[in-house]
Design a protein around this nucleic acid. Sequence first.
DNA 1: GTTACTTTGTGAAATCATTCACAAGCACCC
DNA 2: GGGTGCTTGTGAATGATTTCACAAAGTAAC
Lengths: 208, 208
Amino acid sequence: MKHIAESTVRRLSLYLRFLEEFEAHGHQTISSGELASQGGTTSAQVRKDLSFFGSFGKRGLGYSVNDLSSRLREILGLGRPWKVVIVGAGKIGAALAQYRGFRERGFRIVGIYDVDPQSIGLALDGVTVRDQRDMEADLASLHAEIALLSVPAEVAQPLTDRLVAAGIGAILNFASTPLHVPPHVTLRSVNMALELEILSYALVNRDA
Amino acid sequence: MKHIAESTVRRLSLYLRFLEEFEAHGHQTISSGELASQGGTTSAQVRKDLSFFGSFGKRGLGYSVNDLSSRLREILGLGRPWKVVIVGAGKIGAALAQYRGFRERGFRIVGIYDVDPQSIGLALDGVTVRDQRDMEADLASLHAEIALLSVPAEVAQPLTDRLVAAGIGAILNFASTPLHVPPHVTLRSVNMALELEILSYALVNRDA
DNA sequence: GTTACTTTGTGAAATCATTCACAAGCACCC
DNA sequence: GGGTGCTTGTGAATGATTTCACAAAGTAAC
């Protein structure tokens, strides 16, 4: 298939969220316009995004909420659960472990690792923090596909290398340093300080 | 000034980080190519980004690490401290409160608010959690410019409305729901479940 | 001072993403 | 069954961002 822009995938994810809300409210169909107004985009954008994957709507009517949800879940790879490990059981790691949004979407935390003896052995949301030395062996037996990396910047790259060597498929990085991974591994970063700096820029350039 | 793309601002922020590392290593000058290789971009991109704001380099030599850092800090509005409040003292709010990256960049947490009597009164990294009912009065006296919103999705929009009414300038939203703000308020959202879904998409479409 | 070498700054070209605009398809009503 | 009113799907147009490519400007060596 043609390459799909990240912005498109991000919006599909949002659409799915609205569809689930609509479903909960008992609605059967939804138009591209309704979907757009929720997500702060345009109806043309919605239709274009969907058109990359097929035609799911009925002209004159809109989209079946149920059908479109299933199709989106399928497209996004949410049809099956994903096994996730958390590397770093500090404050951020702990917050991630208990975050309900992950489980709701089929992301199951199957392991949490740290080096601090104080943390090892603690149960975070039902999962026991294990020694980072056990990480490779666990990954080999659990076959987790995704890692959440919430460790200090200094150790982020070495741990990334270990995860990659252990066969991880994707990493979500919360450390404030850019990481390097081989092309077959997918990497995304969430950098909160950077988000604040973008806000700072916007504040000083408000009327520019 | 001409409108600057968000992607450009984001990269400027990254450049500043590398410059600080270079500074710490005692380097005096840096070329666009060196700056680019750190951030996973190209030297042309670096030069284009900087060119929107002026010409800071010396041909044949590169950029003075010191000068360029100062100029970037100025451009990004980091020359002065920003007052930040955290709304929602749950796990994510607590993790944000203790996050060192904020303070290092001049973002000072001046208030934390919650509704849970169990949380109110707790000290998180030196700041006492206060009752959410005190929020408006505090904002009026503190003049905080930025709010970090880490509350359940259901109450995110009403709290946003209260922050806007109280004169907040920018909001960083961690709730997994899109928010609406008037145009004079800057809003950014960090949606961790959505980031995981983008990884999920990448995993199932790896070889597509 | 001239030559060789390096790196910036920037128009122009290329690529990528969004918006427009409208034909085609479907439901509903009379 | 034909008319009316919506809404989709999609080429074409526009707009935005990135990459290219090169003249201009600097350093350093002799």
